[in-house]
Design a binder for these strands. Structure first.
Length: 275
DNA sequence: AGGCAGGTTCTTA
DNA sequence: TAAGAACCTGCC
C-alpha cells in the first residue's frame, strides 16, 4: 500500500538510529524490516510518501502503531528550546527519526546481546538466533527463507550448543536465563507494561546481564517509555562535551528519550565513525 | 596481528 | 561505595 506522510519519517535515519537491528537496506532503496513475527518491505520514494508491502488492514492493525504514527514528532521537536543550540542542531539533523514500538521481549534479548559488540556482530548473532529458533515467515526475493524472532518458549527450548553457535559469548547464560524466566511466566513479563517507569526499571535490572544502559534501552524501545534516557559511550561523550554543567532533563520530561535519540544520532554522526 | 566493541558483573580497597 | 579487571567473539 501507499501512504501519504504528514509527519517526520525517514527510513534511512531510522534504520541507522541504533534502536533496531533487523532493518536491512536492499537494492532500489528498499528496506526489509522484521518486527516480532512480521516482516515488511518498505521504501520511501519521496520525503512524504511511503510504500509498504502490506494491506491497509495489516497497516492499521499493526504497522501504524509500530511506527508510532499516533505521536507527532515534528511537535516534539518544536518543544526544544532555541537557546539549546546543540540539541536544536541535533534534532534538525535527526528529523525523521521516530521511536518505534518494538516488542519488549525482542528488545530484552537483543540488547542483552548487544553489550560490548559491534553492530555487524550484533546483527549476525540476532539472525543466527532467528534462524536457529524462529518460525519461518516467508521468503525473500532471492528465495531465502525469512525467520521471525524466536518466542520465549522457542528460545528457552534451544540447547546450549546451538545457542553457543550463535556467537553469544559470555552473554549466553544471560540470554538463556532471560528466556527461561520469560517462558516460565509470560504473563508476568507482559504485565510489566502496566508498571510505573521506576518499577519497570527495577524489574528489568533484576535480569542477569541487564544493567542501567540496557534496561533503559528496553524501556524506551520495547516498552515505549519515552522518558527513558539510555546512557552509552556516545551519549556520555556528548554530555561531557556539550553539557559540562549538566543536561536539562527536567526541561524535556517526559520525552527525554526522544531527545536522547537526536543527541545520539547526531553525536555519533559528527564523530564520523564507521559503525 | 591485535586492539577494541553501543556493558555488566565480580573482585578488591 | 567506588574504581578496575575480566569476560566471549568477531570485526576492522
Amino acid at each position: 500500500m501507499e501512504l501519504q506522510l504528514t509527519d517526520d519519517f525517514d527510513v534511512h535515519k531510522i534504520a541507522q538510529s541504533g534502536q533496531c537491528f533487523r532493518w536491512y537496506p536492499l537494492p532500489d532503496n528498499q528496506c526489509r524490516i522484521f518486527a516480532g513475527s512480521r516482516t515488511l518491505l518498505l521504501s520511501q520514494p519521496s520525503a512524504d510518501r511511503l510504500h509498504l508491502s502490506c494491506t491497509e488492514e495489516e497497516f492499521t492493525d499493526f504497522w501504524h502503531t509500530y511506527f508510532d504514527f499516533p505521536l507527532n514528532y515534528a511537535q516534539m521537536r518544536a518543544k526544544i528550546l532555541p537557546s539549546d543550540t546543540y540539541l536544536s542542531q541535533a534534532a534538525q539533523y535527526g528529523s525523521g527519526i521516530r521511536i518505534l514500538r518494538q516488542d519488549p521481549w525482542e528488545m530484552l534479548i537483543t540488547f542483552i546481546l548487544s553489550q560490548r559488540k559491534s553492530i555487524p556482530a550484533i546483527q549476525k548473532s540476532v539472525e543466527a538466533l532467528c534462524t536457529a529458533a524462529g518460525s519461518p515467515i516467508g521468503n525473500a526475493a532471492d528465495g531465502q527463507t525469512l525467520y521471525a524472532f524466536p518466542t520465549p518458549e522457542q528460545l528457552a527450548a534451544l540447547d546450549t550448543d546451538t545457542l553457543a553457535a550463535c556467537g553469544l559469548g559470555y552473554r549466553l547464560p544471560y540470554i538463556q536465563q532471560a528466556a527461561q524466566t520469560v517462558a516460565h511466566d509470560p504473563a508476568a513479563f507482559a504485565a510489566l507494561d502496566r508498571r510505573s517507569d521506576s518499577e519497570l526499571l527495577q524489574s528489568l535490572l533484576a535480569f542477569h546481564g541487564v544493567g542501567a544502559k540496557i534496561a533503559h534501552c528496553v524501556m524506551l524501545f520495547g516498552f515505549h517509555r519515552l522518558d527513558a534516557f539510555p546512557k552509552d559511550v556516545w551519549i556520555n561523550r556528548v554530555l561531557d562535551t556539550h553539557y559540562p554543567n549538566g543536561y536539562p532533563f527536567a526541561q524535556y520530561a517526559p520525552f527525554n528519550g526522544i531527545m536522547q535519540q537526536y543527541l545520539f544520532f547526531f553525536g555519533r554522526a559528527t564523530h564520523s565513525i564507521s559503525k
